[in-house]
């Protein structure tokens, strides 16, 4: 069943903010089980694309459909009535974690179940036992079970980000969209988070779409790259296709100097 549908399909979607075009008529298909790096210069539209995919922003009228595992998120600039079902299938990881900082890490993990349980259970905080168990298991798996009872606000960025991944696990998501998940983390925490995403992709067959600023991380962990420039997809292919020339095309001429400097170092 899952194999019938793409994990993500975007069909000629445009998004403008006033006069600025964040994404122009982009189309993209991601198959289940893929691990895709979304790269591009600042302002090229990476976040916009991911947020459109989860229905957190609306595309311009006239845009085609966006689907997650066959379930429509939005079309023609209008949210689908079933958007919440679609969202429930994908865990979203934010650069700024976006946890409920005053709640414990444990409670945050349980929030992953909100798309599946009765609304009153969520509102009153009476989560079913299997959710509670799943939350503990997930925290264990991402390695922050020791901090389960602490408020998210009191934890480090790396710990919070792993809590966010635990939330996606409790959600029993079939895909993870991560928008610069490691941009605010130190190198060690960053590596942990990337390894965790790679492990979920390899062992659990989760689809992962991750936007990255560090090209080396993309080269190391992903098999497919999608590159955006000024709202347009200018490369979509194997990660190995990111040659020196391509990267200069993606990031602009100055990237030449960046690479030269790092070689010299």
């Amino acid at each position: 069943m899952a194999e019938l549908h793409s994990a993500l399909s975007i069909d000629r979607v445009t998004k403008t903010y006033g006069a600025a075009t964040a994404l122009s008529s982009a189309s993209l298909v991601v198959k289940p089980g893929e691990m895709v790096a979304l790269i591009g210069a600042s302002g090229s539209g990476k976040s916009t694309l991911l947020r459109l995919a989860s229905g957190l922003v609306l595309a311009d009228p006239g845009s085609g459909a966006i689907r997650l595992f066959g379930e429509k998120v939005q079309e023609n600039g209008r949210l689908s009535a079933r958007v919440r079902r679609a969202r429930a299938r994908v865990g979203f990881i934010f650069q700024q974690f976006n946890l409920v900082t005053r709640a414990s890490l444990y409670a945050n993990a349980m929030l992953g179940s909100l798309g599946q349980i009765a609304p009153w259970r969520g509102v009153t905080g009476s989560f079913p036992n299997d959710v509670r168990k799943r939350a503990m298991d997930a925290l264990e798996r991402v390695g922050v079970a020791d901090h389960a009872g602490k408020r998210a606000a009191n934890l480090s960025g790396g710990q919070q980000q792993r809590g966010a991944i635990a939330r996606a696990l409790v959600q029993q998501a079939r895909a993870i969209f991560a928008d610069e998940p490691i941009a605010s983390l130190d190198p060690v925490s960053a590596r942990r988070v990337m390894r965790l995403l790679a492990e979920l992709n390899a062992q659990d067959g989760m689809t992962v779409v991750v936007t990255l600023h560090q090209v080396d991380y993309a080269l190391k962990y992903c098999r497919r790259a999608v590159a955006l420039k000024a709202g347009q997809i200018i490369y979509d292919g194997p990660i190995s296709g990111l040659t020196r020339e391509r990267l200069i095309e993606i990031y602009g001429d100055e990237y030449r100097d960046v690479m030269d400097e790092s070689v010299r170092a």
């Binding site: 989860s54 957190l56 919440r84 079902r85 679609a86 969202r87 429930a88 299938r89 994908v90 865990g91 979203f92 934010f94 700024q96 974690f97 976006n98 946890l99 409920v100 900082t101 929030l111 992953g112 179940s113 909100l114 798309g115 599946q116 969520g122 966010a164 939330r167 959600q171």
Partner: peptide
């Protein structure tokens, strides 16, 4: 942020 975090779970 946190609102979007919750929204993204399908809540």
């Amino acid at each position: 942020g946190p609102v979007e975090g919750v929204r993204a779970t399908g809540a």
